[in-house]
Design a binder for these strands. Structure first.
Lengths: 148, 148
DNA sequence: TCCTAACAGTTAGGTTACCTAAATATCAAG
DNA sequence: CTTGATATTTAGGTAACCTAACTGTTAGGA
């Protein structure tokens, strides 16, 4: 295979990959639509589980801007799932910590969503499941290589 | 492996899969943010390429409700990328057809986005690329099995 | 010491892409 | 020729993001 053919193949793979990405957005929406907690909120809430998350760190980890994180945090706070407290080391900063209710909400949401997906994965053949399993770390690598 | 262990494994795979989904949404946003044409608009525009798309069909194919499709179509029409014309066979219906500019815009957008993704895929090892290639049809199957 | 630049977060205001419900127009079956 | 179903648009609303501007805090010189 010469360089040109290699490029063609790569572009074709990229096209299929993009199609998968597009559908993923759709699947995420479906997954969200059944639930109380949105993905955005679940993401923030998970960051707050260890109790030491700062707003900026949460935003960076989720790939959103700080005001977007603040917005979700405020919603979670109103729902009683996190609390905000002053950072003892830096009074500019705010520490976000999940409450007991928040912790329970994460477990619940994760369980329900995982069961939904597991139900689908369960219909796959052994070989298909292996293919997914083998690709996930690569997807992870690809996703992480898309910089802000 | 007994059933219980199988379930555990499936749930763990589901968790990783969900993480990949979450990141995909993020990648899609990045991909969109550089471009004139949003994914939503590009999706609609592609449906209009064969010139025979009806609003309801476009919506169904994209997994959105009809008013959402109408909204995107109106934007594309204002941008001169599609035109709306009465369906000769059913005057309730509207046929959406890409204009020459629309056709060019799709080619351009696809090329740019594919090149971006291909650039990333090009950094993978042979084995990693094969893993992605093998998994994409399975992802497709999974994505399609998530019903409205 | 005190000034100032950098930093952490919030507030204000705007955009995009969805949604549901209601309105309009047409079709088709009895 | 009426009536229920179908195709689309309009109206109004929501969630999650963004940038710019503002407030308060820190820290590193002069």
């Amino acid at each position: 295979m010469n360089d040109n053919q290699a490029d063609e193949a790569l572009l074709a793979l990229a096209q299929s990959f993009r199609e998968a990405l597009r559908q993923s957005v759709y699947v995420m929406r479906r997954l969200d639509s059944e639930e109380q907690l949105s993905s955005a909120q679940l993401g923030v809430l998970k960051m707050a589980l260890d109790g030491a998350a700062r707003v900026g760190g949460i935003a960076r980890n989720l790939g959103v801007k700080v005001p977007s994180a603040t917005e979700q945090i405020i919603k979670l706070e109103r729902a009683g799932l996190v609390k905000r407290e002053a950072d003892p080391d830096d009074s500019r900063a705010v520490r976000v910590a999940a409450t007991a209710a928040g912790r329970a909400a994460v477990e619940n949401a994760d369980r329900r969503r995982n069961e939904f997906i597991a139900g689908i994965l369960g219909t796959l053949s052994e070989a298909e499941r292996h293919a997914v399993e083998a690709a996930l770390p690569v997807f992870d690598k690809i996703n992480h290589s898309v910089q802000y």
